[in-house]
Amino acid sequence: MYAQMVKTASDGVKSREDMSPEEAAFQAKIDADIKIEPRDWMPEDYRRTLIRQIGQHAHSEVVGQLPEGNWITRAPTLERKMILLAKVQDEAGHGLYLYSAAETLGVSRDEMVEMLHAGKMKYSSIFNYPTLNWADIGAVGWLVDGAAIINQVALQRTSYGPYSRAMIRICKEESFHARQGYSAIMKMAFGTPEQKRMAQHAVNRLWFPALMMFGPSDKDSVHSEQSMAWKIKIKTNDELRQQFVDQTVPQILYLGLELPDPNIKWNEERGHYDFSDPDWSEFFNVLKGNGPCNTDRMKDRVGAWEDGEWVRDGLMAHARKKQARKDAAKIAAE
């Protein structure tokens, strides 16, 4: 997941009559569930919206290394440290596949990274929250990757071929992360009183931020309609959020933890859990850069990029020298 509030680069859905023959053919393909591939004709707005969405998703994977990386050096056992390292390594790999998927739309990874660093592209709000105790690491895997999976499973059916294939590949690893996260928090919830306290604290803090991952409520979600017509978005924010709540509440109860929201209640009639809305003003604040970690996250990423410039330049210069030597040797041999 990790694509929230992706602005659709158009105003509203066009009716069939207003479409050009190309646009109509394109929409017919989508309606018939035929994937759009990089060389196919596509409306400019579709391309631009997808770049935003896939780019935002890629940036989220990369920035998402930071809150979990925060605990790698303090992981309590060798095995936990290895599990966490492997997970964070997977996330960096997801970033790579997604950048490559976005590159098929004609934008380079470096350009996207520059836009992120300039504040012109976003990453998921969730990674602007801190990881404060070891149980947070379990909770992130369980809740954050769990929420991501719900969105990404739906996106496996997305209309753009490279994105859909990236989602299929990524989902397998994400479900592994979620299972490992749950098993880590189980140890805590069933452990000593202090461990249980850490687990409760983690769930209390991360619950609402996890709900926010699905984006604003449908009634306030202005960009959804066109994205749904293009099958860039498959289910609405509220549908996905409900699915997440229904799946997660029984897991919290199984852990013997208190529910993080007093209004969570099974609704027999709807066949779903009722729950409170997150504080949307907090959500919009985080998007504006006022989350607890926005400044630090960007400082880390921009710092890593700037500190690494000499390395990238050095390796490029070496590759050029090597090529020049090869060419010179070839000429000399002729």
């Binding site: 290394q65 790698i72 960096a92 950048y99 890593a304 990029w305 690494g308 990238r312």
Partner: peptide
């Protein structure tokens, strides 16, 4: 180094 290396491939 996690998350702080010069390029994504190096993080991996």
């Amino acid at each position: 180094w996690c998350g702080h290396s010069p390029i994504l491939e190096e993080d991996i």
